[in-house]
Amino acid sequence: MTTFWLLAPVMVIAALGLIFARKAVHAALALAVVMISLAILYAVQGAPFLFAVQIIVYTGAIMMLFLFVLMLVGVDSSDAVRETISGQKLAATVIGLLFGITVVLAIGQTVSGAVVGLGDANENGNPYGLAELLFGKYVLAFEFTSALLITAALGAMVLAHAERLTPRHSQADIAARRMREYAESGRHPGPQATPGVFARHNAVDTPALLPDGTPLASSLSPSIVERGQVREGFDDDIDKVVEQLETEEQRDRRAGRDGRGTDGFGGEK
């Protein structure tokens, strides 16, 4: 009972969060909290098998939900709060309340008394009791359900299956093509030089410099070239560096820093 009163507020808050969360991923996370709390309640009520299965099945299911959210809704988009159908909120509230009252009344009338027979059901251990029911009394329903699920999975596979229109390039094919291109046109078979890293500016809009100082245009992403965002003016750059070095040298000379005199490294005073 303690567990119930500890978990019930958590579950209610998480369930409300599921409805009111702006971000779809937060909603999915709240759903996970509800499901795991439910699993713990199962464990407390003497159904350890259901506890484990609930978590295993629902973690997989909620993970799928995450993926659907990310793929369909986008990484960080939020729900629109504007009503698209007029009067929808009011109607949903009324119908939801009616449904809730019905459920509470129905369940309240059927299970008002104390539940009996748990000891008998779990006599040989909980998994045995469950297995006897699943593979004895309800075996047909169990098998039909699994047939239904397999059909659904097959259906999803058929729907998602796409005919391949172009031939498949394997890794070996691509390597062979690269070598052929190298033999025919001399195109370098390895990966291209990365931009920026070897230049003075460590950025993607700066082409890599060849050993002689000329920029390598192919190291830039084509989209950056397309947008006209390539950084240019490297000749000035070199001049600037030379100038900078010269001024530093002059300043040093003016300060008389030629080995000793200032507090340089290891200089005698």
Binding site: A39, I55, T59, M63, P127
Partner: peptide
């Protein structure tokens, strides 16, 4: 637990979250 191995599967799958 009577379902100890399943329990291990269950909690490790929470870790994936």
């Amino acid at each position: 637990l009577p379902v100890a191995v399943l329990y291990v599967l269950a909690v490790t799958s929470i870790g994936v979250y």
